[in-house]
Design a binder for these strands. Structure first.
Lengths: 351, 351
DNA sequence: TTGTACGCGTTATCAA
DNA sequence: TTGATAACGCGTACAA
């Protein structure tokens, strides 16, 4: 590790001069030639600033604390963490991730992070819900990921759940389906209600009155399979909007047992085709993909813009993928999710 | 953040005395009373050392770098990361996790970690294979997780794959099965060959000559389902040992379509019943559980023992769960996996 | 038994 | 335009 002192020695100048130059504060304060020389030497010696020493002075570490209760418990976490890490890396930040199990060790973990001098926090849930950030976070720049702040005031980023329901249902309507079922999730989740709402709006907008018997909410395993079976036999839906991968499976399974081919006899649109369908039935599910990676990525951009008090456009590295959501709003931000079309929807003229 | 200086001021002593006391270096060097006083004040003021400042002096950060290519791509990662984080937390360490996508940005990420002064590395794969740690890691204390070091010399921790195959097969034999099939994985993996080996040994030990037609290796989806279907129809196995959750699903599905009840008509033992079976068929699969959490936990203990050059027993916090593997060996360590019995195995007298 | 002085690598202030 | 000098919080050799 080469230090400023060594560079100063080699360049025959003082450490302060080196510091000025290497921090680009030499504009009109250091002779252009000496500056160039210092830069050249620094480059030749492969100088990289020591973040610890810098932090000791500036009390800024360029470390972000990623706090979550459920990093380990859901397969989606990976996407968020990865996106966050990528953004952090591109912006010159590091991320320390900690997993809190409930409020128990939460404050202890937060205290540790604070001692390490993190510049801000990402507080992540793994499915959209109303949450309230732990008290210890107060006063630190914070962004809530995949949830909305119950107490208000903290910016958050989450999928636009209503629109997910709307778009999925709309897609089925456009394909000619008229008896569209919703296979929801029996656990109380924000997403559940909102997607149902979107599903209903789409139907109404298309002049179809929602039929409550077509919308069910199921848990897992046999009871879920039984419920979907009844739905098949009693209401004969021609399209299904499924809350998630596991719910879509029940539809695929029921269809298979009745000799119905998904994508020909019945149409299915799901959310976030993650593993179950992909590994069991053919990976053909038309899905609205939850932007986990993007949420992670964008939340870090937003957090850094808070930390460094710079406009968001300024800190956001150029990206070739999806456009940015309207970050300027200081409250919660809903991210639009895109529908990925596979061959689980039969496109035929309207009946 | 209260500092040593403040404590020194309040105690009416110098900073060095405080430092001596708070680092437990006061044995016979500081008056017992002053020491006690200093400790009391430190406690009252809630003193916590500033890790940054300390690191600047000691060039030790108590930060561990967790490096992996696939944190995001597998649902198992969570368990390893969580276990590692727990151990780190209990041992007073922090973990910075980075996800490298191939060798491309790997060295850049490693360089960043090194600049932040990590004390050592965890290099993790998400399924047991022969690997070789990146060059940039050389010279740092390192432990390889869920893989074995190809070039030797670096300690590693991975499941005992052969024994997984042996135990699972043995369990089926003990339950009375005689035509035991192996549904393996067509991808080339270390685990695949080793589990097959264990499967064969168990059969031979029971006086059953392995029948090659009973051991198949499949990919995913329809082709896999077809292969397992043929297996059912042509060889009529009474027991199945399945490489993983997804492979077990094909067996459940084929059984269901033939009216056979798993746990009554056929027996199934799998590995790591993760999500597929649990969310689709009832979560009843008898499995050999891969100790992801334990691997993470133990690897950190081992790494810390390397970093601090202390015997492993010394750094390992007391645990109530499984016993420690034989860490003393300096090469690869195989962790024994335990079989969790659910009701997917029909226990009947041998035919 | 305690305090002084210095260094870790940086940044910031101020005087030259 | 440049360079001492102090400070960030801590650890430690050495002097008192």
């Amino acid at each position: 590790m080469t230090t400023m002192k060594e560079i100063a020695h080699r360049a025959g100048v003082s450490v302060s001069t080196v510091s000025l130059v290497l921090n680009n504060r030499d504009e009109g304060r250091v002779n252009a030639d000496t500056a160039a020389n210092v830069r050249a030497i620094a480059k030749a010696m492969g100088y990289r600033p020591n973040p610890l020493a810098r932090s000791l002075r500036t009390s800024r570490t360029r470390i972000i604390g990623f706090v979550s209760e459920e990093i380990a418990t859901t397969p989606y976490a990976g996407g968020i963490v990865l996106g966050a890490q990528d953004a952090a890396s591109e912006l010159g930040y590091m991320m320390i991730t900690v997993n809190t199990d409930g409020r128990a060790n939460e404050e202890r973990q937060l205290a540790a992070l604070k001692r390490y001098g993190v510049d801000g926090f990402l507080y992540a849930k793994m499915s959209n819900r109303v949450t309230t950030a732990p008290g210890g976070i107060a006063g630190y720049p914070t962004v809530i990921v995949d949830a909305v702040d119950g107490s208000g005031g903290i910016p958050s980023i989450a999928p636009d759940e209503t629109r997910i329901g709307y778009d999925a249902t709309r897609h089925l309507i456009d394909a000619g389906c008229r008896r569209i079922a919703y296979v929801g999730c029996a656990e109380p989740m924000l997403a559940e209600g909102l997607r149902l709402e979107g599903y209903r709006s789409a139907l109404r907008d298309a002049g179809i009155e929602p039929d409550d018997d077509l919308a069910i909410r199921v848990w897992f395993n046999q009871p879920a399979l039984d419920a979907v079976s009844r739905l098949f036999d009693e209401r004969h839906p021609d399209g299904f909007f499924c809350f998630n991968d596991a719910r879509a499976w029940y539809v695929y399974e029921c269809a298979a047992r009745r000799g119905l081919v998904v994508g020909r006899d019945v149409s299915v649109v799901g959310v976030d085709n993650h593993r179950v369908i992909a590994e069991t039935f053919a990976p053909q599910l038309t899905t609205v993909e939850l932007p986990h990676y993007e949420m992670g990525y964008w939340s870090v951009c937003r957090l850094v813009s808070l930390i460094e008090d710079r406009p968001l456009d300024d800190v956001t590295p150029p990206r070739t993928t999806a456009p940015l959501p309207p970050f300027d709003a200081d409250g919660p931000v809903s991210i639009h999710c895109t529908l990925i079309e596979k061959d689980s929807v039969a496109h035929h003229a309207a009946a």
